[in-house]
């Protein structure tokens, strides 16, 4: 099984030269640590920066320079700052090529739930609803099962959804899966994880065609 950093590392393989990328809070943020060599991407953070750089050195933190997770960051040479309306114009207007988000649940039809557990927990949707409604390419980074050991890849989301039919690909600690009209299509297995184990851990419809290769990290 992959740890969180390895999930991020696998997702980073989806980055392509020239992409503008929005990374959500949590595992997605780690993707920035694994940009493949020889390609150039720019990270957009919806609180108003394009060209987000790494965390600052100890002592260089600036309260006026944070990402959407409220972490202190740096700005790369050539970065740009803008207001929230302009930021979401970039997102809604499909100027961002890839969005990576965390999720509590994903359905076999590509619905995503990640903002609320009724009566228990309300994080709020933040920018997630705008992102999932407009982005052309949405990858979800999450664990295959929740803390209770229940599958997070479902026939239908049980929690209030963030968006309808929007997820294209899911990368978990066990597998890479694509959302297809037939359900979750198994693309790759995590090193040492069998197809059988993935089958048992997936509640939604799982499509297995031919030999399923192991991920290469």
């Amino acid at each position: 099984m992959l740890n969180k950093n390895q999930i991020a590392q696998r997702i980073a393989q989806e980055l392509k030269d020239g992409y503008y990328v929005n990374l959500g809070i949590g595992i997605p943020t780690l993707v920035a640590n694994y940009i493949p060599e020889g390609i150039e991407v720019e990270f957009q953070s919806e609180n108003g920066i394009l060209g987000m750089g790494p965390f600052p050195f100890d002592g260089d933190e600036d309260a006026d320079l944070i990402n959407a997770g409220k972490q202190t960051i740096t700005a790369r040479a050539g970065a740009a700052f803008f207001d929230s309306a302009t930021s979401f114009a970039m997102i809604r207007g499909q100027h961002v090529q890839l969005t990576v988000l965390g999720a509590m649940e994903v359905s076999e039809t590509g619905d995503i739930a990640n903002w609320k557990i009724p009566g228990k927990m309300v994080k709020g949707m933040g920018g997630a609803m705008d992102l999932v409604a407009s982005a052309e390419n949405i990858i979800v980074a999450m664990m295959h099962a929740n803390r209770e050991g229940e599958s997070k890849l479902l026939t239908k989301c049980s929690l209030p959804i963030t968006g309808v039919g929007c997820v294209k690909r899911v990368v978990t600690d066990m597998a890479v899966l694509d959302i297809t009209p037939d359900g979750f299509k198994l693309i790759e297995r995590a090193p040492g994880v069998s197809v059988e184990e993935i089958k048992n851990a997936t509640e939604g419809r799982l499509v297995i065609e031919g030999e399923i290769p192991e991920m290469r990290l």
Partner: peptide, 26 residues
């Protein structure tokens, strides 16, 4: 949704009473 919040404020200041957005559909 955050983008709708930003745009609703912008619209309020810009004299646009309402707008359509895909965010939050469904």
């Amino acid at each position: 949704p955050q983008g709708s919040l930003a745009e609703r404020c912008r619209a309020g200041g810009a004299g646009i009473p309402a707008f359509f957005t895909p965010a939050g559909y469904g």
